[in-house]
Design a protein around this nucleic acid. Structure first.
Lengths: 195, 195
DNA sequence: CACTTAAAGGAACTGGAGTCCCGTTATGAC
DNA sequence: GTCATAACGGGACTCCAGTTCCTTTAAGTG
């Protein structure tokens, strides 16, 4: 018999919040579970028993994060929607807390298979949430039939993450360029699935 | 007075090679310096004294890696060159050893500022090495004057790294799509610097 | 409202990563 | 060749992240 209700759920919420805080403040490397337990006001034994490692905590955090959906926009044009998406990603990655949090999560995902799979799931839901923008654009005739909607959405985020990784900074011009490039390529039929 | 020659250089080479091996085999997380010292056939005190941490080792490894240049191609067309670049990145990331190595390096760079800066330097040199392809394309009239050559090169790699991070796999079709999208966007003038 | 037991908490314990100390090697200068 | 010392190496030591064990709390059931 399992007891998910009440205390168990509260402990999970407290620990995941503390994990997010710790990841944002100290980063993935110098993180110890005892500190998270202290922040969460929870026994350290509990954290070790239920999760056991930082990467497992991150994986659970990602599952939790995937549940709250991101606000999708509807500007009426493909470029407008992709710009809105790029802007959302930009603001997330440049936000002091969220930016560091995502960096730490990426660190965890590149260290551990379990965390990596959780990250894949997280981005799968996020990309799926925004895909309808592209599908509407196809209906409007802004992109050819058979265009892979998810590929277009990924094409918008990719340069932002890559820029952050390889240069350490991102600015609005990169976001705008990413959205424009994706829109142009989509219109040209680059993302039509070939099989 | 410093003594870079002979033994010191040999020790560095051995340790960096061992670091690469260990990163490829065990990943960034479960890596300890004693193991690297053993692999390098070097005293563990030496590793701790000269580098002190895994991230510092990765930073030095990146400096070393940046020195050996990547083979740039010259197919005569922008799309051809970008495809060659995408293929090179694809083969690097899918190669069993290199792929794991890069993943581990990214983990280190998202954990530590020093490693991150070394990574920025590494990609700066790699991108600069390939930029001439785009500059020649501009001369040929394949892309408008004022196109940011480095931005085009980055646009090719970005989707590959992003795909690997968010889905865990990359295949030739993604590489081809990335090269094509970058070429189309470049031709459309998306990467013309606006200032 | 009992009663069972899943789950949390406290505290002592332990193993190995990282440090320290001091002796050894070999580089570079003369 | 000789010398001073930069750099390496071995082994003992330390400290704390992670484990273990046992007690306490409260969720779910009838």
């Amino acid at each position: 018999m399992t007891r998910p209700g009440g205390r168990t759920a509260r402990v999970r919420a407290q620990v995941l919040r503390a994990t997010g805080d710790a990841l944002a403040e100290q980063g993935f490397a110098h993180l110890d579970l005892a500190d998270i337990a202290r922040r969460a006001d929870v026994g350290k034994t509990t954290v070790y028993r239920r999760w056991g490692s930082v990467t497992a905590l991150v994986a659970d955090l990602l599952i939790d994060m995937a549940e709250e959906s991101s606000p999708r926009s509807d500007t009426g044009s493909l470029l407008g929607d992709l710009r809105a998406n790029a802007d959302l990603v930009l603001r997330t990655l440049t936000d002091p807390r969220q930016g560091r949090l995502f960096t730490s999560i990426i660190a965890a995902a590149t260290c551990d298979v379990q965390a990596a799979e959780a990250l894949h799931g997280f981005y799968a839901t996020r990309v799926a949430e925004w895909a309808p923008c592209v599908e509407r654009a196809i209906e409007r005739g802004e992109a050819p039939e058979g265009t892979d909607a998810q590929a277009v959405i990924r094409a918008v985020s990719a340069p932002l993450y890559y820029h952050l990784l390889t240069t350490g900074r991102i600015d609005p011009s990169v976001a705008d360029q990413a959205a424009t490039a994706a829109a142009v390529a989509a219109r040209a039929g680059v993302f039509v699935c070939q099989d």
